[in-house]
Every structure is written in structure tokens, then in C-alpha cells.
Amino acid sequence: MIMVAAASAQHSPSPAPVGIVVHRALLAYDGMRLFDNLSFEVVPGHVACLLGPSGVGKSSLLRLIAGLTGAASGVVRGSDGAPLTGRVAYMDQRDLLLPWASALDNVLLGSRLRGETPDRVRARDLLAAVGLADRMDARPKALSGGQRQRVALARTLAEDRPVILMDEPFSSLDALTRSRLQELAARLLVGKTVLLVTHDPLEALRLGDAIHVMAGRPVELGPAMAPPGLTPRDPTEPHLVQLHRRILSTLRAADAATGSQP
């Protein structure tokens, strides 16, 4: 019975995990090469975290993968060889909720834009899963920052895409709300391929299967650091504290290599 309930809450079976492949990507802004010959992969079903100094191009890389940058070249595709167009859900640092729509209508936005029949039952399930069962009809203005970001998470999950791109999704929240949302995300994003941009090494340690540090201009991606254990992890555990120290020193070196101001 419990299995059945869990299955119905998920509603439709999630699509099979698809990894991300970026091959020899090139992106320039105003004649300055942000990426040149950048290649990397995210294993299907893994959470990859991108750390790096601000302005290094983390968000640009996400936009490139999301297909939102026009003037880029190189290959971006799924690990199955097909393009990622229409298989990516995007979650921004800002909640990007439409202020005139209720939480429920915000979650249903994607299906409305695609001209599908809005699946209200599933949207309600998702809002309940992020802990907003009693705020479904509230407009964003009546919600707190944490609640708004929960709606944004539900909206991202409602897209039911195999690949999820997150651009500092929890950075505008206070510490307690952030850690709650990280736990929630770790639970709800199981089975998805996630690329998470963050400026917080602890967040990467809590959620990441692979952690990359981006540095330099044009950008290079550092080797993956893989924290052991299941997510969400407790970053105060001794072996993670050690890894945290390593990440910080890599970041410091990255900052120097990128040449940004302190």
C-alpha cells in the first residue's frame, strides 16, 4: 500500500536519467572569450556542483546548457546523444514567480505555456511535497522568501525534466531556511541529473556527487571532487571538513587565476 501511495504521489514515472555532455564549447562576450574549448560531463542521475569566483562564468555555462545563449558554439547534448532542448528545467536564484498568479498557477505555468491541460492534482501533490499544502492559493507577495523558493522548486519539479539546472537556488535565504530547502531538494531531486551553481562550498558538500571549481579566463573546469556518503550530508563531519578546506584553497587559487577583485 505504501508503495502504491508513493507511486501515485509521483504520478507519472520520471523519465530515465540523462547526463549532460558539453564538448568544446565556446562562448564570448564583447570579444572576451569566457569559455574556449570547454568540455565536461555530468553523470546521469548525479548532482554536479559548480563553484568558482563570481563573474567566472558559472551562470553563463548554465545558460549555455539551457540553450539560452545564442552566440555560442560547440556541442551541448544529453548523454544519450540527443539534444537537451525540452529536457531541461531551470531554477534561478530569484524565484521568478509571476506576482499575479497563485502558487498553484505558478507551478502550472509550464504546462500552460506548452498548451497542455494543466494537471492540478500533480501540482497540488508537488506543493504539498514542498510543505505548502495550505498556501496553494496565496500570491507570491503573501509568501516568505523561503516559501517562494519552495514554490519555485515545485514549479521546477512540475516540469518533470530529466535534467535540472540550478543557479544559486538557495543563496538568498537565511541559513536555517536554506538548510531545510537543501534537504528537501536532495530528497525530491533523486533520479534527476542536476547541475547546481553555488558560491557556498558547504552547499556543494551537502548536495554534490561531484564538485568542480571553475577558474581562469577562458574558464577551465577543475577535476571533480567526490565527497563520500549519501546526500544530504552533514558538512561538519571530519572528512568533509577536510574536503571543505581543500575546496577553499582551490577556490582561493581560482580567484587569483581569474584575477577578480577581493
Partner: peptide, 23 residues
């Protein structure tokens, strides 16, 4: 950024543009 979000959700087809206009 709303338009970017809409593009990742629905693409750039004419019907998606009309829906983005409306919603």
C-alpha cells in the same frame, strides 16, 4: 528572466510565443 524561464519550459515555437504573450 521570465522570458528565459518560459523558453526553457516551452521552447520558441509560435504557439509557445503566443502562450508566453498571454500568460
Amino acid at each position: 528572466s521570465w522570458l528565459d524561464l518560459a523558453q526553457t519550459m516551452a521552447g520558441t515555437s509560435t504557439s509557445a510565443r503566443l502562450a508566453t504573450m498571454r500568460h
